[in-house]
Amino acid sequence: MPEIKVNDLTHTFGKGSPNALTVLEGIDLTFETGSFNTIIGTSGCGKSTLLKMMAGLFDPSDGEMTLDGTVIKGTDRRRGMVFQQDAVFPWMTVAKNISYGPRLRGASKSDQREIETKWAKMVGLTGFEDRWPRELSGGMRKRVDIGRVYANDPDVLLMDEPFGALDAQTKERMQSDLLETWSTTKKTVVFVTHDIEEAIFLSDNIIVLSSRPGRVHHIEKVTLPRPRSNEMRLTEEFLEIKRRLWGMLDH
C-alpha cells in the first residue's frame, strides 16, 4: 500500500500578490511504505518547501498530500522531521531530548528510561545520556536529533538536509549509521539533499526536481544491493548514476 501520496501539488508564495513566486508546480509523487526516497535539486527548487508541507508545517496553495489515504493537515507525530538546523533542545540533556515525544504523551518514568537507553544506543550516544547538548559536537547533536525523532516512533521520517553542516568524514559515518537504523525499523524516509552522492548511497528512489518552479524532472531507481558499504561509492554502477544525475542538475 502506498504510504505517502502527493497529488498535483502546486505552491505559490504570496499567491495573488504581484510578487507571487511559484516554487513548486504539478508535483505528483508516491512514496511506498518502507522505502528510502531522496529529493534532489539545486537550491531554490523548492525541495525543502515540499518536505515542510509533508510535515504539515504549512499548507500547499493547490493540491494535497495524503498519508494512507488521509489528507495531511497540520503537524502530527506520524510524520517526524529532522531539520537542517540544529533542533536539539539545549535546555534538555541528551536523554531528555530523546524521550521528549513519549513524555508529551505521558510515558511512565520507566518507559522513558527504556526508550532513552535504547535510542541512545541505536544512534551511538551511549554514555552521553546525561550530557547537555552544548557539550556535544555538531555530528553528535545530529545523532540526538535523529534518535529523538525515531524514539517518537513516527510512520514517516522527513529529513531536510540533516547532514548538510557536517564535515565529509562525519557525514559518511552518519549516512552509514542512518541506513543501519533505517534497515532495522523500515520506516518510510523522505530525505532532501543537494548532494548527489549522498542521495545515491542512501536511496531506493531519487526524485530530481527542476528549479523555478520545481517540477518532477526524473525519478531514478537505485538498484545497488543493500546493505550498502562505502566501497560501493567507487563502483562503476554508482558512478554511472552519479554522472547521469549530475548532468540533470543545472549548474
Binding site: 510535515a55 503537524t75 510524520r79 517526524g80 533542533a87 521528549y100 508529551l104
Partner: peptide, 10 residues
C-alpha cells in the same frame, strides 16, 4: 526550528 521540531513530534 524548536517550535517546528516539537510540533512534528506531536
Amino acid at each position: 526550528v524548536y517550535v517546528d521540531a516539537a510540533s512534528t513530534m506531536g
